[in-house]
């Protein structure tokens, strides 16, 4: 077995998992607390990447770009909540689907008007463009940075949710909405902050990945589906569930794509294994989801069950 390939694939899986977590954590909280489904959550991912790319081009600093992206998306998220989303909480789920689908169209066209159909690229600074050698392993420096940032953000969110007053309200809201209202909390403001934090996390994921994939229109619309799968597998409203499920799915997806043909060759002829592997690896994540739903329809760490010690 090629250990170098395995390690590099494990790092890829970790990177994908952390990006998924940044997307899914916000989705899951919004889902769990507001009972709201935001199909356009991926648009925040795109806006983060695009704004970041522009700021990076202006200032030449990736750090400033990242900060600007997160702040911008936080503001955009709060604005969207204030203008549109807050009017929908009491409405039918069908309305959530339609309006947030409309939001995707709006975000994508506005982005196209501002940044053009090609989107924008971010050049990596010299220091991050290199490779880091540990023994005989060679790892691209930027991938390590993504992983470090992802872990930091996860830790930050963990502390926010478990240690702060806001976090206490968030946890209470995810397990029992009525109780939070009864506490006399300004529920509108709580919802707006949660929505904006969720958006900012997605925007952060967008600016993190942009130097590798470029920032392009509609970049959020595919990854968001896998983020939904993460939410379902992890259990709605649970940040912890989103974290484990995101890593699990990140690894399964990455390793499936690189190793499934080898595994299948144990059972099948070489040729049929090579035909079946790509299709099957595309399905793996969803098969996992179906399996979880059959065994635990509430997901692995549902917030409602989780808080009942």
């Amino acid at each position: 077995m090629d250990w170098h390939l395995l390690i590099s694939q494990l790092l890829n899986g970790l990177q994908l998992g952390l990006l998924l977590f940044l997307l899914a954590a916000g989705l899951s909280l919004i889902f769990g607390i507001m009972d709201f489904i935001n199909l356009s959550h991926g648009s925040f991912y795109m806006v983060g990447a695009l704004v970041g790319a522009s700021v990076a081009a202006l200032t030449g600093s990736l750090l400033i770009a990242a900060l600007a992206a997160v702040v911008a998306v936080f503001v955009v998220g709060a604005a969207v909540e204030w203008l549109v989303v807050c009017r929908l909480y009491n409405k039918d789920h069908l309305d959530h689907v339609l309006v947030t689908y409309g939001l995707i169209l709006v975000f994508d066209s506005v982005a196209r008007m501002i940044w053009g159909p090609a989107g924008a690229a971010i050049a990596l600074p010299e220091a991050l463009n290199g490779r880091i050698e540990i023994g005989d392993f060679v790892i691209p420096a930027y991938r390590l940075l993504i992983i470090a940032c992802g872990l930091l953000a996860a830790a930050g969110l963990y502390f926010l949710v478990t240690r702060s007053r806001l976090g206490m309200l968030i946890r209470a809201g995810a397990s029992n909405r009525v109780m939070v209202t009864a506490l006399g909390v300004n529920i509108d403001r709580l919802y707006r902050i949660v929505f904006a934090i969720g958006a900012a996390l997605a925007g952060f994921a967008g600016i993190l990945i942009a130097p590798l994939t470029e920032a392009h229109i509609g970049m959020g619309n595919e990854i968001i589906i896998i983020a939904f799968v993460v939410v379902i597998v992890g259990g709605i409203g649970s940040v912890k569930g989103a974290f484990y499920a995101a890593l699990l799915i990140g690894f399964i997806d990455t390793l499936g794509r690189s190793y499934l043909d080898d595994v299948l060759k144990l059972f099948l002829s070489n040729q049929s294994a090579e035909t079946a592997a790509p299709a099957l690896s595309a399905m793996l994540v969803y098969i996992l989801m179906a399996g979880v739903l059959v065994c635990k329809p509430q997901g692995l760490f549902s917030a409602a069950g989780f808080n009942r010690r």
Binding site: G102, L105, V106, D108, S109
Partner: peptide, 13 residues
């Protein structure tokens, strides 16, 4: 697409 999206949102809301 922008018009379409705005129309959709307005329709529901």
């Amino acid at each position: 697409h922008l018009m379409f999206g705005l129309l959709l949102i307005a329709l529901v809301m």
